[in-house]
């Protein structure tokens, strides 16, 4: 009896025994809508960032062409910042959207909007509708709703240099903004769950040990990631968290995260992390450089290594380049589906 992709992912996240690890790419920071896929199908970005049906079609194309065993939406990290007030540059076919301008010079200047009103603006409803379309058309494939983590979202609406300094200098202001942002993220994630998302993935690239250091990581990143995670757990779906960069400085904080799986950058040794903290469900971490610049053989070999190391969920390590060849991605997903055999 074989598991459906959704069962396999949810069982893995529930720490149940499965036949083999799932191979996924969550969307958001880990957007797998590569140029190869878009040129084949004609479902393209940046248009796909705005319309639910196109977003769902493109997510379906990605699932079909790459072999990743999920749908991952949205394809960017700017949905949240947009409705919180940032100016967005929506990018091009090959280049993902980014923040063009942060509207607030400091945490104290942040204007608090009503959450209900934000949920009705920007692209929030489009993403939720795309989740609904996808979950209805393919009930066996998990829809993963990707959201931007609280620290990164806050640093997308407040000038990032000032934001980082105020974590020290103006703690009260910082906590107030992070709390507000976290409340909004929970509501957004719940909307995606209502739409049929099977899991939520949080990518928080500003909340790294390299940027914040251990003390601020614990005080802010762990606190607000957990707040968001707890808020999502209340809806009954699991949460995956991706931590960017070198993790050495913040490793003791990692088991304190309430997430159901932890994903890391390529240079973190997940096997050792798991040995040290056996309670963690690990996810990752095939080098995205390899996926972009390597060849299918090498991709397969490295993927098989991850499977052999007992990594629980196989996934690209960090942001996937839109120039990555679909053949390389297929080599990755097929190797996992073959149980990492042949190498």
């Amino acid at each position: 009896m074989s598991l459906s992709p959704k069962e396999r992912l949810l069982d893995t996240l529930a720490k149940k025994k499965v036949d083999r690890p799932p191979v996924i790419c969550t969307g958001g920071m880990m957007n797998a809508a590569v140029v190869d896929v878009m040129t084949r199908t004609g479902h393209t970005l940046p248009e796909g960032h705005f319309r639910s049906n196109l977003m769902a079609e493109l997510a379906t194309d990605v699932n079909h062409d790459t072999g990743f065993e999920n749908f991952g939406i949205p394809f960017c990290m700017t949905v949240e910042a947009e409705v919180l007030g940032s100016e967005i540059d929506f990018g091009t076919l090959a280049c993902e959207p980014k923040i063009a301008r942060e509207p607030f010079a400091s945490n104290a200047q942040v204007q608090f909007r009503t959450i209900d009103r934000m949920l009705e603006s920007g692209r929030i409803r489009q993403v939720a509708e795309a989740a609904l379309l996808l979950s209805r058309s393919n009930p066996d494939v998990p829809v993963i709703g990707s959201i931007t983590g609280p620290v990164s979202t806050a640093a997308s609406i407040v000038d990032p240099m000032t934001f980082l300094k105020e974590l020290h200098k103006k703690r009260e202001d910082s906590h107030r903004v992070l709390d507000y942002v976290s409340e909004f993220l929970i509501s957004f994630a719940r909307l995606l769950v209502d739409g049929g998302a099977s899991a939520i993935c949080i990518g928080d690239p500003t909340a790294t040990g390299e940027i914040l250091g251990p003390r601020l990581f614990q005080e802010y990143a762990v606190t607000y990631l957990n707040k968001v995670i707890d808020g999502i757990h209340a809806t009954g779906v699991p949460v995956l968290v991706h931590i960017c960069g070198e993790m050495k400085a913040v490793k003791p904080s990692i088991p304190k995260l309430h997430s159901d799986a932890i994903s890391t950058d390529a240079f973190v040794n997940l096997k050792l992390l798991k040995e040290e903290y056996p309670q963690l469900t690990t996810m990752g971490n095939l080098s995205t450089f390899l996926l972009e610049l390597g060849d299918p053989d090498k991709v397969s070999r490295h993927t098989a290594g991850l499977v052999r190391d007992g990594i629980d969920i196989i996934s690209p390590a960090c942001g996937l380049s839109t120039a990555s060849a679909v053949g390389n991605i297929q080599a990755m997903t097929q190797t996992v589906k073959d149980g990492g055999r042949g190498w």
Partner: peptide, 14 residues
């Protein structure tokens, strides 16, 4: 030496 991280360095420079 990873005693200071980015926020601290920014404040030093201020």
């Amino acid at each position: 030496e990873e005693e200071y991280f980015i926020p601290e360095l920014l404040m030093c420079s201020d």
